[in-house]
Design a protein around this nucleic acid. Structure first.
Lengths: 344, 344
DNA sequence: TGCAGTGATGGTACCGGAACCATTCTGCAA
DNA sequence: TTGCAGAATGGTTCCGGTACCATCACTGCA
């Protein structure tokens, strides 16, 4: 076949570089490089020839090499487990925005111990990312120091109050959301409101939600009882279990505020099993407004926070900083909405 | 302060390299490099001194540089949207296994046109990944060619039958699963079974499921009617809508097989709204066995496929190949299970 | 005493784009 | 015709870890 003789022959990717393309076209490597990153600097005729050769050879420029010259195009992200929470939507938002900005997203995901978190951050920084997005509780001072001294801009997606941020923050006031929902429930006439969450320890978002719940009760002149609060795993079964626990403890409990829709939905199923009317026997409120919430029978009253948008905004903050549009450490608070449906 | 004089002073990450560390310790750069990748080759005393200097300086080795020498430690992944399907679990499986193997996961996620898919793959290959995992329909010949000529091992997570695989495949036989569920429904006495899926065009997993459904009906001596099939978006609302459409078309329909739990759960809610008994008025079956399925009221009969394991296995295949344990293109079929609960 | 064998360490080039600066060439005003 | 701005292009070096090979010290054995 003449194929291997006509200049379009394909070497494996490993052996192809700007130098090789340059040789085939008869220009300098630098010219090929310019076609890739600053096409306008190259004469149209030359550009066309180079592009043709790139196409013919199936050349894919090596991003590692250009990154080494300080043009890193990686965004490192650390997120909690994707299952059973709004995280998936958020990751989708981050991913979409990254792609649009021409960045690639390096994802580390998991439930972290201090040690594992440190190691993950270290790995990510090894890739010399242009920026980092963390949704996780940076607890260790070492991890924090690592991030600061890396010089990369950092966005934390987290509770916007409290702990001193590393750099930028995107999030909602979990205090406000929980406070608002609790007040909302009270306004609807509920007298004895329980609070269910996933394990709170070390998670400042949940801490803030609980604090908001407490603050609302106090303002209403209701005493806080630890026995009105339960922690369960973030599963539908967990929600069902919490419902049982609380109603057994307090026969007069008339509403429960779940810190996650997943839990709330599980509780609703348990009510069906027991043929308890919702909200007749008990009111149920969730958090997150996931897709199913509106379709649920009965439709779920919940706190709507736009997780997808949160992810997008986090990346946007980063890109703005990288583009020089934004120099300062900023705190972006996204709004929220109490979606009043029928379950409470 | 003496801090800046004692050899432990911190430069920004950008200015730190093995050469700098080597200079501080008084050894050759090569020795530092060895401490990082082949500690056994370095005398314990020297090693200790180097590690100490690394620690003191907060040095994080640049993975870009080592990747350029052919030791790439990136795995590139392309997955469909994370929301409302088992993809999140699968990504979690992939992520866990990558971390354990010391690889970083570059994630591209979205709903792809031929063009966008090609561009995503091109971007990923630009990072010279050690391997690629694709869950998406590689439709364009160009994308395929790109992958093949990259030389990187590729795992497709997909239907295990049909299209010629690029390299390795991990998946389930969607035909078998759908066939089995349809037969199961028939065995339970359902006579007129509808089939609901998300848009099938271009998605061979769904095509295979529908074919399995058809094959079962044919074997049962039941004629296939296109009017028994509906396509809706992958949301709970979509499932509810499909239920309405099918029952209006066929008053005698007695069971519906949904190609996703999300759809089935939406349909169950619609039944509650209409006070239709499940399975008395109509039987509902899903696909995926998501967390909520078992907790649902009534519990959802569904096809269980272990998506987390699928993700893990995909990465494992890749790592085995990279480790030289496995040279051949393999097809790994994971099992499945018909989980018979009360909804059908 | 001599020399092969082994383990520890050093020097240098290289991976592949791109920054930087030098050079060549074109067009046009003086 | 000369001079020169400015566009197009080329040559070289660098980023930072590591493969490859050279060197050196030291042990053991003839």
């Amino acid at each position: 076949m003449a194929r291997s003789e006509d200049g379009g022959d394909k070497k494996p990717l490993e052996r192809l570089g700007v130098r090789e393309i340059a040789k085939r076209v008869g220009v300098a490597p630098m010219t090929v490089s310019r076609v890739l990153s600053n096409p306008d600097m190259v004469a149209p005729a030359t550009r066309a020839k180079v592009l043709e050769a790139i196409e013919a050879a199936g050349f894919v420029p090596n991003r590692l090499a250009s990154s080494m010259k300080g043009n890193g195009r990686i965004i490192g992200t650390v997120v909690p487990p994707l299952i059973n929470s709004g995280i998936a939507e958020q990751v989708q938002g981050m991913s979409d925005e990254c792609q649009q900005g021409g960045y690639s997203m390096l994802l580390v995901q998991g439930e972290f111990t201090t040690e594992a978190e440190e190691s993950s951050i270290r790995t990510l920084l090894g890739w010399r990312p242009a920026g980092m997005i963390l949704q996780s509780f940076v607890q260790s001072e070492v991890a924090r120091q690592l991030l600061v001294s890396s010089g990369a801009p950092v966005v934390e997606i987290s509770e916007i109050k409290g702990r001193q941020p590393i750099d930028m923050v995107v999030g909602v006031s979990n205090f406000e959301t929980a406070y608002a929902m609790t007040m909302h429930l009270a306004a609807k006439g509920y007298k004895r409101i329980g609070f269910v969450s996933t394990p709170i320890h070390g998670n400042d978002r949940l801490q803030q939600r609980r604090t908001g719940y407490h603050a609302a009760l106090t303002e209403l002149g209701i005493e806080n009882h630890a026995s009105l609060e339960v922690e369960v795993p973030i599963t539908a079964a967990g929600g069902a279990e919490a419902l049982v626990t609380l109603t057994e403890r307090h026969a007069d409990i008339d509403a429960i505020f779940f810190s996650s829709d997943t839990l709330a939905i599980g509780a609703v199923q348990e009510c069906h099993r027991r043929a308890w009317a919702i909200p007749g026997r008990i009111g149920i409120a969730g958090y997150g407004d996931m897709d199913l919430a509106a379709q649920l029978y009965p439709p779920l009253t919940t706190v709507k926070v736009n997780r997808y948008e949160m992810g997008r905004r986090a990346v946007r903050q980063l890109l703005d900083r990288l583009g020089g549009k934004q120099k300062l450490a900023t705190i972006t608070s996204l709004g929220f909405e109490i979606v009043d449906r029928e379950s409470a």
